[in-house]
Design a binder for these strands. Structure first.
Length: 825
RNA sequence: GCGGGCGUGGCGGAAUGGCAGACGCACCAGACUUAGGAUCUGGCGGGAAACCGUGGAGGUUCAAGUCCUCUCGCCCGCACCA
């Protein structure tokens, strides 16, 4: 008999037990339904924070619950271990990124293990290990072979102080996240993945993702940004060049009074050449160059521009309109050029006002009171066409179609779909990433590294000084190579891949973690994939989740896997807050999981974090709340210690037919709790209410202590179930108490209990009597009493009689076993 | 500006249209104790009560935290996307 609950001792004991007996090791088993539970793998920063604990605690409840319900569960863990922080550590402290990373992984793995999560550690992966990044490179080659990886010159984020390129995600509000210097754009040759080829499918298949939060689907939909319209070309006066524009409002094409090009548009210098405006145009382009990209794309920026001196011909009416350049037109959307319709576009309207350009109304509102003669703002609403030649009188919708049809018939333009989504820039001028497996041969040009030569290994001896180029550029043994095709001296690509590439396919690798020649075995992947439940922070709503979807579709297309989507169900967990804001070092409000575990144990930490709030919502950290969960576990401990002797020797089985009312009440509570906890986990992931139901059962058991003639078999039933129900949340204490109450095998191997519907049928229920919707009285009646009987009981009730005396009863509403509502006048 | 979410006791949070505040924390009182920051018991939205209470104003309904309309506040995402 143990007197005191000592979490650290029993947690170590059971973690060792699970470890030694390969408890959570999984393999394919066609006889059982599979369940793939996955939490987003962490970057190994070196210490676990509360957000991780929350993420993995949620995942563990689901994984354990499913396993106990007969599923063959895959629940792996690994490390997203390439990336900038390791290299920064190298620059700052002179530690090699590999050494830094691997020691962080060791440290974090130790911390993770103290949480008692049911991981199959045999499947652990680290994206920075050659046996993993070999296949990240394999993915690159497959994409390249299929025309989905290409190189082009592009403007990238450049920090002038650090002298290096930054990933988009390392740019925070237009500044470098490390030194807070304003980020510039710099043109460099870069590798891209053609995710835009998949834009429509990425958009369409969102419909299939019923298990995803709408919020995330909406964010992806907006990010993809599909818009329908048409693209058409205009002749430029005195030039052979054509000017192509994209518009979603072809119905307003008769309202075009000028054209606008982005200042970077290649046609600008051509058309301005030799005009009196040439100097002004050059000056304006120079001016725009000095405005940062962030300010450039801000709606607050004042719209400015300059006339190019050239004119375009509107193909619909032959009208000559001036071509301007302006800061509000962006080169990287559409064609980098627009037709300006100031009467029906607010931006064009403001610009036209400022530069005294004509405004011509071509859409009239259907609302006759809406006299829009003196336009104060652009009119973007519905209506019918005017001033539009043969098209007058058509509605906006009809007009769009008819104009496009006309353009197509006359070879002016055609219907087009435009996406906001851009191709994915994957080059990084950094060391600590997967090298891009390409070779540049003076004879053969760019040549992919043959599959059999993978991996292209990262060299170890590298100087990390900041130069603005990849450190690999200075490692001769790395870049000097021979062409795989012709054998002549060639140079390796020295850029490495964005770490999002590594995390776009890792969930497949867990299915075949040790496979040598292929990223995964199709049979194994097709057994496990798709992930049944994916859990992580909402900050990955777009980037990671979109890239992973893209990779999955690509792998489907090349017949490597059978699923079109990687994650059937997605749970986006809320943040862990302290004093109302996100835990961060700079705010000094960080609570370390290590400290909490040391003090209270992992069971308490897990329980608190699951109890304090439903998983999707933000969670406010409370030291006192933790204390409360610790007290609860102590109460459970004592409860079992006190009751154990009672049923230790008594193996009599429970006779449910002869329960006294007090026992029946406890018996009811046991089954009601099984039902509630099962439903809360299974249907809604509402762990907080599941835990509170378990607390209620424990409270019932506690008050049962006062009962004189206790029923040992009933207590045993209650305690067994209590421990099983609590075990996914706080597994160690439950294993320990399970063993102490005489069970031979692990509680994890217990089947999840089923509630007995008969146990939930009570003899008597409490009902409420309302008068006109207000509760006036409570009565106890036999369950399922007849409506007429209930009405009579209510009307005969003295309190109700007094209140209804002399009033007319309009009607009586009876909700079975709940309430009787007497409506009076 | 557009899109999404959230407003319930002192706090975290519960409530298939059917008893608002489950469960926990904090607090108060009592018990046990040399002691209590341990444990146990009880209380705990406001109000003396009738009653009043889910950000605010209307509405639907026998019945609204829940449904509808308007409105205020906070949080998150996107933001000159043609």
């Amino acid at each position: 008999m143990e007197l005191k609950y000592e979490p650290n001792r029993i947690e170590r004991k059971w973690q060792e037990y699970w470890d030694k007996n390969n408890f959570y090791k999984t393999s394919e088993d066609p006889s059982k339904p599979k369940y793939y539970a996955l939490e987003m793998f962490p970057y190994p920063s070196g210490n676990l924070h509360m957000g991780h604990v929350r993420n993995y605690a949620i995942g563990d409840v689901i994984a354990r619950y499913k396993a106990m319900n007969g599923f063959n569960v895959l629940h792996p863990m690994g490390w997203d271990s390439f990336g900038l922080p390791a290299e920064n550590a190298a620059i700052k402290h002179g530690i090699h990124p590999a050494k830094w990373t691997f020691s962080n992984i060791d440290a974090m793995k130790q911390q993770l293990k103290t949480l008692g999560i049911s991981y199959d550690w045999d499947r652990e992966i680290a994206t920075c290990r050659p046996d993993y990044y070999k296949f990240t490179q394999w993915m690159f080659l497959k994409l390249y072979d299929n025309g989905l990886a290409y190189k082009k010159s592009a403007a990238v984020n450049w920090c002038p102080s650090c002298q290096t390129v930054l990933a988009n995600e390392q740019v925070v509000e237009g500044a470098c996240e490390r030194c807070e210097t304003k980020v510039d754009k710099k043109k460099l040759e870069q590798w891209f993945f053609k995710i835009t080829d998949y834009a429509q499918r990425l958009l369409d298949d969102l419909e299939q993702l019923e298990g995803w939060p709408d919020k995330v689907k909406i964010m992806q939909r907006n990010w993809i940004g599909r818009s329908e319209g048409c693209q058409f070309s205009m002749a430029i006066e005195g030039s052979d060049e054509m000017l192509t524009v994209f518009t979603t409002r072809p119905d307003t094409v008769y309202g075009v009074t000028y054209m606008v090009l982005a200042p970077e548009h290649p046609l600008v210098s051509v058309i301005a050449k030799g005009t009196p405006q040439e100097e002004a145009v050059k000056a304006f382009i120079n001016e725009v160059k000095f405005i940062s990209d962030v300010d450039r794309s801000s709606a607050d920026l004042e719209k400015t521009g300059v006339f190019t001196g050239a004119y375009a011909i509107n193909p619909m009416n032959g009208e000559k309109v001036p071509i301007w350049i302006a800061n509000y037109v962006l080169m990287d959307y559409g064609t980098g050029a627009i037709m300006a319709v100031p009467a029906h576009d607010q931006r064009d309207f403001e610009f036209a006002r400022k530069y005294n350009l004509p405004i011509r109304q071509v859409i009239k509102s259907n609302d006759p009171t809406d006299e829009n003669n003196q336009l104060e703002t652009a009119y973007a609403g519905d209506g019918y066409m005017i001033n539009s030649g043969d098209f007058d009188g058509l509605s906006v919708e009809e007009g769009k179609q008819k104009i496009i049809a006309y353009m197509e018939a006359n070879n002016i333009g055609s219907a087009t779909v435009n996406f906001r989504l851009r191709d994915w820039l994957i080059s990084r001028q950094r060391y600590w990433g997967a090298p891009i497996p390409m070779v540049y041969c003076p004879e053969c040009g760019p040549v992919p590294v043959p599959y059999e030569d993978l991996p292209v290994l990262l060299p170890e001896d590298v100087n990390f000084k900041i130069t603005g180029e990849s450190p690999l550029n200075y490692v001769e043994s790395f870049y000097k190579t021979n062409c795989p095709v012709c054998g002549s001296e060639a140079r390796r690509e020295t850029d490495t891949m964005d770490t999002f590439v590594c995390s776009s396919w890792y969930f497949n690798r867990y299915c075949s973690p040790d496979l040598k020649d292929m990223p995964f075995d199709p049979d194994q992947v097709n057994y496990w994939m798709p992930v049944d439940q994916y859990i992580g922070g909402v900050e990955h709503a777009i980037l990671h989740l979109m890239y992973a979807r893209f990779f999955t579709k690509f792998l489907y297309d090349i017949k490597m896997i059978n699923s079109l989507e990687p994650f059937s169900n997605l749970l986006t967990q809320g943040m862990v807050l302290k004093d109302g804001s996100k835990m961060s070092k700079s705010k000094g409000n960080v609570v370390s999981p290590e400290e909490i575990i040391k003090h209270y144990g992992a069971d308490t930490a897990r329980l608190f974090i699951l109890f304090a709030s439903p998983p999707e919502r933000d969670l406010e950290w409370s030291d006192q709340g933790v204390e409360g969960c610790y007290r609860f576990l102590n109460r459970i401990w004592r409860l079992v210690q006190d009751y154990a002797p009672l049923f230790a020797e008594d193996s009599e089985s429970l006779n449910t037919a002869s329960l006294n009312p007090r026992d029946k009440d406890l018996y009811y509570k046991v089954h009601a709790t099984i039902k509630k906890v099962s439903e809360d986990i299974q249907e809604r992931f509402n762990f907080n209410t599941a835990i509170s139901a378990i607390m209620e059962l424990s409270n019932h058991l506690n008050s049962y202590r006062e009962v004189q003639d206790k029923n040992p078999a009933l207590i045993k039933l209650a305690i067994d179930n209590l421990l099983i129900l609590l075990s996914p949340f706080s597994p160690h204490i439950c294993e320990e108490l399970w063993q102490q109450t005489g069970h031979q095998s692990s509680i994890y191997l217990q089947p999840w209990p089923r509630y007995n519907p008969d146990a939930l049928i009570l003899d008597e229920v409490e009902m409420v009597i309302q008068i006109s919707g207000k509760v006036k009285e409570r009565i106890k009646v036999p369950i399922n009493s007849a409506k007429e009987e209930l009405e009579q009981i209510a009307l005969d009730n003295p309190k109700i009689m007094a209140l209804t005396d002399g009033r007319e009863i309009v009607k009586i509403v009876v909700v079975p076993n709940k309430l009787i509502n007497i409506v009076i006048k």
